Each structure stands twice: as structure tokens, then as C-alpha cells.
Amino acid sequence: MALSPELQPIAARVDRDGWAMVSVQKDPADPESRLLFTVTVGMQEKFGLPELVLFGLNRTMAEGMIHNVAARLVKEKSWTDQPLRMDGVLEGEEVELRPVHDEHLGEVGAINIMIRRETGRPPLEGMIQVFWAGDDGRFPWDPESTDTFRDQPRLDMSWEKGKG
């Protein structure tokens, strides 16, 4: 199976730069459609870090935040597979990084999985979700949060009843 025409430019960017960002839109045919999430491809090989995924921000903010988070992770070598809080990542905002539960890798990591399989790269080992605080300044797991976080699903935990 060969890479689809949509994935060929992403694989070419990874070959050229070592990693790339991909934004997934609600309607890929409409460049103005709502952005669902942004994911990295290639950070695992280039930097020895899990791939990043970020939900619910516009393209400019998402790309800026991912660039800044990636730069800090590479510089500080601070990822230990445990939740990690970072401040000042974009416009003074605080973010928290959490590992994506294995249950969600097939869906949110689909682009990574396809590119890796078709280009002979190592399998996807894991992902980190970048969480940002809601309108109330709190994160989704804070029991005092009043934000609904509709655009920011929690992939750091299982959605199957009774699983961690």
C-alpha cells in the first residue's frame, strides 16, 4: 500500500525536516473549516520524544504552542511519561502535558501510524496531549472547573468503563 496523495507531502516534510505538524480539519476540502486537532509526525525519531497532539485551538495558536512545547521538551529533556506543567508556552498561558492512553493511539495517531508503516519508520510508541486551561483558568480534571472543554477531549485516560 502506498501513501495517499494527502499524506505524501507530510512524509516529504518529515524526510526533509525530521518532523512535521499536521492539522486535521472537520472538512478537509474547506480550508476555512474548523480545526479539530494538530499532531506532530517524526518527533519520536528526531528528538526521542513521543508525538504531540493538541485540540481545539486555531491553526496559528496550535502551531505556535506545539513549536514552543517541542522546543522546551528538547532543550530541557523534561518528559518522564508523567504529567508536566509548563508556563509561558504561548502568550503567557500555562499548559499541562499528559501521556495519551494507549486506547486512543489508533485514532489520534492514525496519520503517524500510516506514514510510519508506509515509509518504513519505527512504529508509533506513544503520544503526549497538550492541555490548555479553559475560560475559567482551570484544566479539565480540576473538580472546580466550570468550563465544558467541548473542544478538548481527555485522551490521557481510558473511556472504557472500569479501565484506568
Rank of each mutant, 00 (worst) to 15 (best):
D135I: 08
G162L: 09
N112K: 09
G48V: 10
T80V: 11
M86A: 01
A71G: 13
S4D: 12
T119W: 03
S4K: 10
G64L: 08
L54C: 12
M65D: 01
G56V: 05
M21V: 04
N58Y: 06
E93G: 00
G134C: 09
P31M: 07
G120I: 09
T60G: 12
G137I: 01
G109E: 09
D147C: 10
E125I: 04
Q44D: 14
Q44I: 03
F47Q: 04
D87Q: 13
R138S: 03
P99K: 08
T40M: 06
N68C: 06
F55M: 07
I113P: 00
V95T: 11
P28K: 11
F149R: 07
L36F: 02
M65P: 00
P31A: 11
L90D: 06
D147L: 04
E118L: 14
F55Y: 15
Q8W: 00
W159C: 08
Q25P: 01
E94C: 07
G164L: 14
E94Q: 15
L52V: 11
V69A: 04
G42A: 03
L90C: 02
A110I: 01
R59H: 11
I113V: 13
P123S: 08
M43I: 10
D81M: 09
I113D: 13
E103R: 05
P28W: 12
V41I: 13
E118T: 04
E144A: 15
R116N: 14
L57Y: 04
H67F: 10
A110F: 01
I10W: 02
V89S: 07
R16S: 15
R13H: 02
H104P: 00
E144V: 10
G48P: 08
T146M: 12
M65C: 12
Q82F: 04
R138C: 04
V39G: 01
A20F: 00
D30R: 07
T119C: 07
M21Y: 02
L52I: 11
D156G: 11
N68H: 10
P31E: 12
G162H: 12
D136M: 01
R34E: 15
V53M: 03
M61Q: 10
P123K: 10
K77H: 13
T40E: 08
I128G: 08
F47E: 09
K163H: 09
M127E: 02
D17A: 14
